[in-house]
Design a protein around this nucleic acid. Sequence first.
DNA 1: GATGAATGAGTTTTCATTCAT
DNA 2: TATGAATGAAAACTCATTCAT
Lengths: 217, 217, 217, 217
Amino acid sequence: MVGNSRPDRPASPRPAPRKRPRQARSRALVDAILDATARVLVRDGYAALTTNAVATMAGVSIGSLYQYFPNRDALVLALRERHSRQMHALIVAQMAGEEPGLAIMIARTIRAAMQAHRLEPALHKVLATEAAHLETHHEKDETEGLLHALLERYALGAHAVVTVPDLRVATFVVGRMAHALIHAAVIDPPPGVDPDLLEGETVRAVMAYLTAGRDAA
Amino acid sequence: MVGNSRPDRPASPRPAPRKRPRQARSRALVDAILDATARVLVRDGYAALTTNAVATMAGVSIGSLYQYFPNRDALVLALRERHSRQMHALIVAQMAGEEPGLAIMIARTIRAAMQAHRLEPALHKVLATEAAHLETHHEKDETEGLLHALLERYALGAHAVVTVPDLRVATFVVGRMAHALIHAAVIDPPPGVDPDLLEGETVRAVMAYLTAGRDAA
Amino acid sequence: MVGNSRPDRPASPRPAPRKRPRQARSRALVDAILDATARVLVRDGYAALTTNAVATMAGVSIGSLYQYFPNRDALVLALRERHSRQMHALIVAQMAGEEPGLAIMIARTIRAAMQAHRLEPALHKVLATEAAHLETHHEKDETEGLLHALLERYALGAHAVVTVPDLRVATFVVGRMAHALIHAAVIDPPPGVDPDLLEGETVRAVMAYLTAGRDAA
Amino acid sequence: MVGNSRPDRPASPRPAPRKRPRQARSRALVDAILDATARVLVRDGYAALTTNAVATMAGVSIGSLYQYFPNRDALVLALRERHSRQMHALIVAQMAGEEPGLAIMIARTIRAAMQAHRLEPALHKVLATEAAHLETHHEKDETEGLLHALLERYALGAHAVVTVPDLRVATFVVGRMAHALIHAAVIDPPPGVDPDLLEGETVRAVMAYLTAGRDAA
DNA sequence: GATGAATGAGTTTTCATTCAT
DNA sequence: TATGAATGAAAACTCATTCAT
C-alpha cells in the first residue's frame, strides 16, 4: 500500500546517496493524511470524519494514522493549523512591497485576504463552523496583528487620515467587518450579487468607516 | 404494540375532564426537551449532544423524547427554530413605532438586533457555528428581509441619502457587516474594548458605508 | 531482503577484529531487554507489558527485540527463567557447608530462601501472580527438590526427629508453608508486624510441624 | 434474545400483580453477565476475557453489558466481590454453633475454609493469580478478621493453650500458613499426595505452631 | 402516551508483528 | 544484524433508536 516499489535507478555512480529517509517519508504520510482529512471534511462534513474514513481516503492504514496523530481531533487541529499557515503566508507575501497610502494598503490587504480565502473556500468554511469548538487560536489572531500594525502606521503621523480615535477599536471593527465581507464574498457568495463587485464594496466599507466624519468632525 | 391491553375506563360521562391536557402536556414536554437541548449544547457542545443526555437533563424518558422528535437532529433544528423565532419577535417588537430618518432607523435596528443576540448569546454562538450545517433557513434570511425593506424605503425617494447604487448589494453588505459586529460585540467581545462602545461603532460603520462618497461622488 | 546492496568493505586484512563481538553483543542486548521487561513489569504490571514499551525502555529497536525473542510471552518466560536461576543459585550457595542437625538446616534453608526472595521482591511478586499462567516449571519445582532431599536425609536414620510419617506429604506441607510465610514476610509484609521476627516464626512453625506430637505420640 | 416470551398466565384474577420489574430483571442480567465472566475466565484465562466474549457467553448484547459495568475490569472486580461474599458466607455459616476448645475450633475453621475453596476452585485460582493486580481488598481481609477473633478468644483466659506471645503475629502466621495449605490442597493439589489427608495435616501444622514449645518453654 | 432496558452497528484506539531498507 | 515505519486484526466503548410493558 505504501510500499511503492519505486524501481531503483539503473546502476549509476550514485555520487551522494543522501538517503533522505525518515523525515521525507513521514512528511509525505502526514501530508497525505491531512489532505485526506480535508477531503473527507469538505465532502461529508465533520460528523462523518471518522479516523477510518480518513485513513482509507489517504490510502494509509489506520495504524499509521495513529502513529502521527494521537486522536481524531488532533487531525482537525493539525489541518486547521496547516490551512492557517498557508493562508497567512499568502497574505504576507501579497502585501510585500513599498507602502503607499492607506487606501491602497487597505485595498491590497483585503485583496490579499480574499485570495487567501480562495485558496480552499470549502475547507475554510467547514473549519470555521464545524470545527469551531476545537480550542481557539484561529488564524484570525495573527492576521489581526497584521491589520493592527497597518493601521498603527497610518493612523498617526503626517497622512493621518484615520478618524477613529481608539486604534484597538478600529482594528477590531475593521477586522470583523472585513472578515465577514470576505467570507460572504468567497465562502458563501450571495445568489444575486456579483462576487467581484464585493471586493470593491468591502474596501469602500472599510475606508468609509475609517475616514468617516472627517467632514462631520 | 401488542400489549398495552389496559382497558380504557368505560365510556363514563367524564364530568369535568379539566381540558387542555393533551396539548398542554405535550407543549410542556417539548419545551422541557428543547430547554435541555439548549443547556447541553451550551455546556458540552454539539459533539456531546446525545439524546440520552438531553432526556436526562429534561427529566424525561428517552422514549418520550422520541415521541416528539424523530431523531437527534430534529432536536437541534427545532431548537434553532424556536430560538430564531424568539429573536425575530424581539427585533420586530423593538422596531415598531413611527419611522424617522435612516440614521435613527439603522441605529434602532442595530440596537434591536443586539438585544436579540443578548437573549441567549452562548446558545446563539453554538447554533451559529456547530449547528450551521443542519439544513439552511437561518434566522438571517428573515431578518435580512426586514433590512432590505428598510433600506428600500430610505434609499429612494426624497431623503435618499444612500449612495450605494445596487440595493441588493447594499442590503447584503450592511447585513453581513452589522451581523458580524453584533456577534463580535455580544458573543465574543474583544478583551480590551468596551462592548457598549461597539454598538455606536456599528452604527457608525453602517452609516459610513451607506452614505460614503456623497461628497466624493 | 532484496535491497541491502551495500557492498561490504572489500576483503581487507582486518588487523585485530577484537573477537567475541557476536556472543557478547547478543548477551548484552538480551540482558538489556530482560532488564527492561522486569522494569516495565514491576512498574506497570503484566497487562501493560507491551513489546514496544520494553524495547523503548531497553533502548533497543523493536526489530532487535524480535531478533532475540519470538513473541511477547517469550520475554516473560525468559525473564522468569533468569530470575529463578538467580534465586536458585543463591539458595544453593547459601546452603553449602557442613550439615549439622535438622533444626539448623531448616533455619539455614529458610534464611537462604528469604535472602533469595529479597533479591527482587517486586519482580518476584509480579512473576508469581500475573505471570503464573505462562506454562509451568516454576522455580518451586527445583527448590522443592532441595527441600525433599534435605528432609529425606534427616527424617530417617539415627537422629530421626521428624514425626510426619509420609515424607512426600511432609515435603509438600513444609514447602508450601515456608513459601507462603517467606512470601508474606518479604513480598507483602503485614503492617503491624516486625518482618525480621517472621523469619524466626517461620522456622518455629516448620519445626513445630515436623516434630509435633513426639510427646503426644 | 432477552425477550423471553414467557406466555402470560391464562386470564386469572391476578390479585396482586406486584410486577417485580426493574430490580429482578437487572439482577438476572447482572448475574448472567458475572456467570459468563467466570466461565470465560476459567475456560480461557484473563487474557482472553474480552467484553464481547463475556456478552456473547451471557447471551446478552454488548450494550447491555456496558449498561451495568463501566469497563472490563469492573466485571472482574464485581465477580471477585461476589465470589468472596459467597465464600465468606459459607465459612461463617459453617463455623456457627457452640464453641468447644481451640483444637476443635481450628479444625472446624480450616474445614470451613476448605469447603469454601471447593465452591469454585478453578475460578478462585484465576482470580487469585491473574486478577491479582486489580485493587486489593481480597476476601483475606475479612476472613483474617474471623481468625483473629478466634485466636483472641482462646489465647487468653483459662484454657490459654496458645504459646505464641504476639497475637498479631500468630494471626498472621496462621492465616498465611493455613491459606497456603488450603490452596495447595484444593486449588492445585499435589500429584502424589492424598488431598483429604492434607486437611488433617493443615490442622496439625497450625496446632503445632500455636502450641509449640509449651514443653520446651 | 410514557418508560427505560436492550440492542448492535459503528467508532476509536491499541499493539503484536512484519519487512524493506 | 539493526532499525522503526507500517500494518491491520482485534478490543473497548458509545449512543441513536426500538419496543415490550
